[in-house]
Amino acid sequence: MKSLKVLIALTLVMVVSAIAIASLGSFKSGYEIGDAVGDFRLKNVDGSMVSLSDFEEAKGFIVVFTCNTCPFAIANQERIQALDTQFKPKGYPVIAINPNDPEIQAGESFTEMQDLAASKQFTYPYLYDANHEIYAEYGATKTPHVYVLQKKDDALEVKYIGAIDDSVRDASTVTTFFVAQAVEALLNDQEVNPETTKAIGCSIKA
């Protein structure tokens, strides 16, 4: 009888484990290539509320999850600015979003975001993900973490996810400009290659 009870218990454990594994397998954490993204409405450093739908003439977006204090994000500030300068006139503006919680990571308050944007003269929106929901919806895990979106009919489709380029710290050693390549491909009706790369940076603090 004792052996039967043990066998039943083991069987129950295996069934529960199988269900849990199946559930994990079907769980989707963030957007993937080809997904249509939802819109958002976040506060910009100039005090305005910004949504992707505000940019009626845009062909797509370069959405960058970044922040004030991460050394990797700091090392990429000029490159993010360069992307906006290069591609906003072509219909792909940069939209930067700070997902960090200032109560967890010092230096990430909205006021400090305003100070940084002013000192660096950002030409793109720098939005505060105050409820720390948008980064999770996208599946962003690092700063910086980039998503290139393309307008298709009434939707925005994910075309690239990952790093800005292949040199996370030193801009002088870049050999492959992943985001720039992706946007140029879209502008020329070509396939994006690669569609994904590994985002390297600080973990999001939220």
Rank of each mutant, 00 (worst) to 15 (best):
K5D: 02
E57T: 00
I200G: 14
K2I: 03
A36R: 11
L149S: 05
A140G: 14
K90W: 05
F87C: 13
Q105C: 13
F61I: 00
K88R: 13
E108D: 15
M14A: 10
P71N: 04
L4D: 12
A75K: 08
A118Y: 01
Y147E: 09
Q150I: 07
E32S: 10
G25L: 14
A75Q: 13
V192G: 03
S17K: 03
D170Q: 02
T175D: 03
V94Q: 06
R169W: 09
M113H: 12
K120P: 01
I95P: 10
G107T: 10
L52V: 01
I74N: 08
V37G: 11
P99N: 11
V45W: 07
Q150M: 07
I164H: 00
P99D: 15
E108Y: 14
E195K: 15
R79K: 08
L12R: 12
Q81S: 14
I62A: 04
S48H: 06
Y138R: 14
T143V: 15
L52I: 06
L83S: 13
S17L: 13
L52N: 03
S203A: 14
F177Q: 07
S23E: 08
I74P: 04
T123I: 08
L24Y: 12
D129L: 03
P144I: 07
D54L: 01
Y124A: 02
A130G: 06
E57A: 02
V168N: 03
Y31F: 12
K90T: 09
F40C: 12
A106P: 12
E157C: 02
L7Y: 05
T175R: 06
D46G: 03
A182P: 01
A140E: 15
E112Y: 09
I134S: 15
A185V: 04
E157A: 01
E108V: 13
A36N: 12
A117C: 01
K43L: 07
Q81M: 12
E133V: 08
D101V: 07
I80T: 11
G30T: 09
Y135N: 07
Q105E: 13
Q181L: 04
G201N: 09
D153I: 04
V45R: 09
K120F: 02
A180I: 01
A180L: 01
Y135C: 15
I80N: 08
V64Q: 05
V63G: 08
K2F: 10
S109D: 11
K152I: 08
E108G: 10
D39R: 11
E184Q: 08
S53Y: 01
V148A: 12
G38H: 14
F61G: 00
A36T: 14
F178W: 02
T111Q: 14
T196H: 05
I62E: 05
T111L: 14
E184K: 03
K90F: 09
I104L: 12
L186Y: 00
A117D: 02
Q150D: 11
K28C: 13
S172R: 06
Q181S: 06
E78V: 13
E57Q: 00
K5T: 05
Q190R: 07
E184W: 00
L186P: 01
D101P: 09
K43I: 10
Y31E: 04
A117P: 00
I21Q: 09
D39F: 10
H132L: 06
I161Y: 04
E78A: 15
A117H: 04
V146R: 06
V45A: 09
L4P: 02
R79C: 12
K59W: 03
L7M: 06
